[in-house]
Amino acid sequence: MGRRITRKQMKQDEFVSTMDQLIRRFGGYWKPALAVLCALLVVVFIWWTIGQWSDSREDAASARLAEVITAYQEAVAENGTGDLAEAEAGFAEVIEEYGRTSQGDIARLFQARIELGRGETDTARAALVRLVHRHKDDALGRLASLDLVRLRTASGQGAEVAVELEKMVVGRNTQLPRDVALFELGEVFVAEQKPDQAREYFQKLVDEFPESGYVTQARKRLGELG
């Protein structure tokens, strides 16, 4: 008497048959498939290597930049001037080696400040404008914006700067934080010899932003203005 085949056994037989056909059909393509797999592994390895190299390069850029900034700060600490030649050469080196990184742009910011100190305002202004455009939404862009505000104020553009700072104070322009904009507005009116308006903005900063890093300077200004 023949063996009775159940539905479960039939399904198992169909599965085995199907797998056997697939193996037979694609068995001849194992070499191309292996080549593709190897190519993918090579791509992954290259990507990993580049990532490791980029991380190492970024670490080296940060370390070198920190050394140069320390030299800059030490030079400035010497009666507010000091010999900045070493620091300037260091920033130029960072820009040369890591110019496309954020560290390179930080070096450009400090280089622009050195140029401002020498009175090279046109060169410094151009560098600061580029940094603002390149870093619109980060801290570096805000620092460059702040330097531009002070440069323009010192260049006699206080009235125009005040209009822009007012927009920042009310939140229509986020280029600078509100507390920074308030302090700079006060400074603009000090430069414009308008003590009443300057006092208003310094007081507003103290009242509305008691935790701001500018509060101490604002209080000092209020004391000077009487």
Rank of each mutant, 00 (worst) to 15 (best):
F189Y: 15
F183Y: 15
P177G: 10
L185A: 02
P210L: 01
R199I: 09
K204A: 15
L182F: 08
F202L: 05
Y201H: 14
R199A: 14
L182A: 08
A181F: 00
L185R: 07
E187K: 13
D207Q: 11
F183H: 07
Q197N: 13
V206I: 02
Q197Y: 11
F202W: 04
E184C: 05
R178I: 01
F189S: 08
K204I: 02
K194I: 04
F183W: 01
G186W: 09
E208I: 10
V188I: 07
R178E: 13
Y201K: 02
Q197M: 15
Q203G: 02
E192P: 03
A198G: 01
V180K: 10
D196E: 14
E192V: 11
Q193A: 13
L182W: 05
Q203S: 14
E192Y: 02
R178L: 09
D196W: 05
E184G: 01
L182K: 10
K194L: 12
F209I: 01
V190K: 08
V190F: 02
E192I: 10
Q203T: 13
E208V: 11
K204V: 10
F183S: 06
E187T: 14
V180A: 12
R199M: 02
L185N: 01
P210D: 04
F209Y: 14
E208S: 12
A181C: 01
V206T: 05
E187G: 00
A181I: 06
Q203W: 09
E208L: 12
P210Q: 06
A181D: 01
R178N: 03
K204T: 14
V206G: 02
E208F: 03
F189Q: 05
Y201E: 06
E200L: 12
F189A: 03
Q203I: 09
Q193H: 12
Q197I: 15
F189E: 09
F209T: 04
A181T: 00
Q197R: 15
R199F: 07
F183M: 11
E200P: 04
P177E: 05
D179M: 07
E184H: 11
E184W: 00
E187C: 10
D179R: 11
R178D: 07
P195Q: 02
E200S: 12
P210Y: 05
F189K: 04
D196S: 12
V180M: 12
E184R: 11
D179Q: 06
E187N: 14
R199H: 07
D196N: 12
E187Y: 11
D196A: 15
F202P: 00
R178S: 14
K194E: 12
P195C: 05
D196F: 06
V188C: 03
K194S: 14
D207C: 00
D179G: 05
G186K: 05
V190G: 02
E208W: 08
Q203D: 09
E187A: 15
Q197V: 15
F202A: 04
L185W: 00
L185S: 03
V190H: 00
A191W: 04
Q203H: 06
E192R: 15
F209S: 10
V188P: 01
E184N: 10
F209L: 04
A191S: 13
F189T: 00
R199L: 11
V190E: 13
V180G: 06
L205G: 08
D179Y: 05
Q193E: 13
L182H: 03
P210R: 10
Y201C: 04
L205I: 00
A191Q: 11
P210E: 01
R178G: 06
F209V: 03
E208T: 12
F189I: 07
